[in-house]
């Protein structure tokens, strides 16, 4: 270790910690987790990871916005999904995440890293916890109709988390989607309604109009 004056040791980790963490992610190809700086600002990063296999998020590529607080790593990083995602513990509107280690409470510890936090997010996609929801509507859907939930989640993955933005879930007709979009609904809501309605356009329109 290079000699270091003790005074500088008291000032803080400076760029050290975050750069080390970015490097650690770079050298670990297996985990397929990336952490990158947005610009020169070391307190703003983006993390990306793949949706876990055998889940509705499989094949999706998820981007997470990361803000580093001044007292990191003694306080947890602030993370939220940039990629829209349909999951009980993630807000379908804002991407806000409900995960204990990311809260400024007593579950985060300074030995965790951005990588461990992103791996925890990946596990969260694998094991949703509908009883501690961030998005109450999605959690309700998950509890009441697991199959329908999974279809919607898969549709959202296809829509928001895949390279081809026009990709639709299997069995969904683009002309039907477009006709419903013309009624003034977003692509995400249309896809959600169509998955709920088993691709029946009339039923989907009813769902969209009543908000059912």
């Amino acid at each position: 270790m290079p000699p270091r004056s003790s005074t500088s040791a008291f000032k803080g980790p400076g760029k050290g910690r975050i750069m080390k963490e970015i490097d650690a992610c770079r050298t670990d190809k297996e985990a397929k987790i990336k952490v990158e700086l947005v610009d020169d600002n070391l307190s703003h990063l983006k993390g990306t990871f793949e949706g876990p296999p055998a889940t509705p998020y499989e094949g999706g590529h998820f981007v997470v916005d990361i803000q580093i607080p001044a007292d990191y790593p003694f306080k947890p990083p602030k993370m939220k999904f940039d990629t829209r995602i349909y999951h009980p513990n993630i807000s379908s509107q804002t991407g806000a995440i409900c995960l204990d280690i990311l809260k400024d409470g007593v579950a985060w510890s300074p030995v965790y890293t951005l990588k461990t936090a992103l791996i925890s997010l990946q596990s969260l996609l694998q094991s949703p916890e509908p009883n501690d929801p961030q998005d109450a509507e999605v959690a309700k859907h998950f509890i009441r109709d697991r199959k329908g939930f999974e279809e919607t989640a898969r549709a959202w993955t296809a829509l928001h988390a895949k390279d081809n933005p026009d990709a639709l879930p299997a069995g969904m007709d683009i002309s039907v989607v477009k006709s419903l979009e013309e009624m003034g609904f977003s692509r995400a809501d249309v896809v959600k309604a169509l998955s709920k309605a088993g691709n029946n356009a009339d039923r989907a329109a009813e769902i969209l109009l009543t908000g059912a």
Partner: peptide, 25 residues
Amino acid sequence: MASSDPPRDPHPPTTDERPTDQQIL
């Protein structure tokens, strides 16, 4: 789905009115 349900915003704001765990913390 009960048809007597009034039309709703597909994303009711109820979750936003209550403070989140994070806000409480």
